[in-house]
């Protein structure tokens, strides 16, 4: 683990100083280029039906159109609101719950089975029932985002707390630490990386929740647009929206991961 981090930092520094891209980057770029070229010429060669696959160039022009004329910002704001509200709610609920479960064995035994069942089960199946409860506006999407995000954070916080290194606990006790001391100065900082892992896993589930929720039933939002262009067979525009969602999820994941890695560096042996 430690070796790997050291290695990557080292290669990164080398490639920066020499200003020469790494072999991985070259191969990766070539693969993407090859894919794009193939995609571009496939319809004209008659290998596939262009109506169903679109072309990179078409997607590019569709992107310009979407950003210029489509009510992109309007729809993006709605989806983003749903995402932020559901995610914030998940964080508010899951961290205290995770702490409780991580520090109390009884609570863990009591809540673990239903929690695990809901974590494993596809929470998205609750979408139709959320619609019955909450209508077709933003509320059911917020609920689905919440349901998707809450379990990974709870379970990771719980694991981070309950799997604290017993050697740290013993060391703290040897200096006469109180229960509160141990909690504040050993358990909380010690479980921070696990909490961030939970948040990172939750991001993917939450993004999926927004889009699935909007695809299922909605009047606005990115998912609504995807559905609209999907049924109209405007593959180019559909792909533009899919790419936007991907970029959003990707950026957020990378962001959390970089914080996580920085914190994890402390613990590398």
């Amino acid at each position: 683990m430690a070796d790997m981090t050291a290695e990557t930092t080292a290669t990164r520094q080398v490639s920066f100083s020499a200003l020469r891209p790494s072999r991985e980057a070259v191969v990766g770029t070539l693969a993407v280029l090859a894919f794009l070229v193939l995609w571009q010429i496939a319809p004209s060669m008659g290998w596939v039906n262009g109506r169903f696959t679109s072309r990179p160039t078409e997607v590019f022009f569709a992107a310009i159109d979407v950003f210029r004329k489509d009510d992109f910002l309007f729809h993006a704001r709605i989806s983003l609101t749903e995402f932020v509200a559901g995610f914030a709610l998940a964080i508010i609920v899951s961290i205290p719950l995770g702490v409780l479960l991580g520090t109390s064995k009884i609570a863990r035994y009591l809540i673990d089975p239903p929690l695990m069942a809901l974590y494993i089960a596809p929470t998205l199946v609750l979408l139709p029932i959320m619609v019955i409860w909450l209508g077709i506006d933003m509320a059911p999407k917020i609920a689905v985002v919440f349901l998707g995000a809450v379990f990974p954070i709870v379970l990771n916080t719980m694991a981070g707390m309950s799997e604290a290194d017993p050697r740290f606990l013993r060391m703290a006790r040897s200096f006469g630490a109180t229960k509160l001391d141990i909690f504040m100065r050993v358990l909380v900082p010690g479980s921070l990386p696990a909490l961030l892992t939970g948040i990172r896993l939750a991001v993917g589930r939450a993004v999926l929740g927004v889009i699935v929720g909007e695809l299922f039933v909605s009047q606005a939002g990115i998912g609504y647009q995807i559905n609209l262009y999907g049924s109209a067979m405007r593959i180019d525009r559909l792909l533009v929206y899919v790419l936007i969602v991907s970029a959003f999820g990707y950026t957020l994941t990378i962001l959390v991961r970089s914080v996580e890695n920085r914190i994890r560096d402390w613990r590398s042996k």
Binding site: R51, F52, G204, V207, L208, I211, V212, L215, G223, I226, N227, Y229, G230, S231, M233, I235, L238, Y241, V242, L243, V245, S246, A247, F248, G249, Y250, T253
Partner: peptide, 15 residues
Amino acid sequence: YSAPTVAFYPLFIAW
């Protein structure tokens, strides 16, 4: 990993 797979649903129906 970061794309919402379900969004390809209309594409798959077409294909």
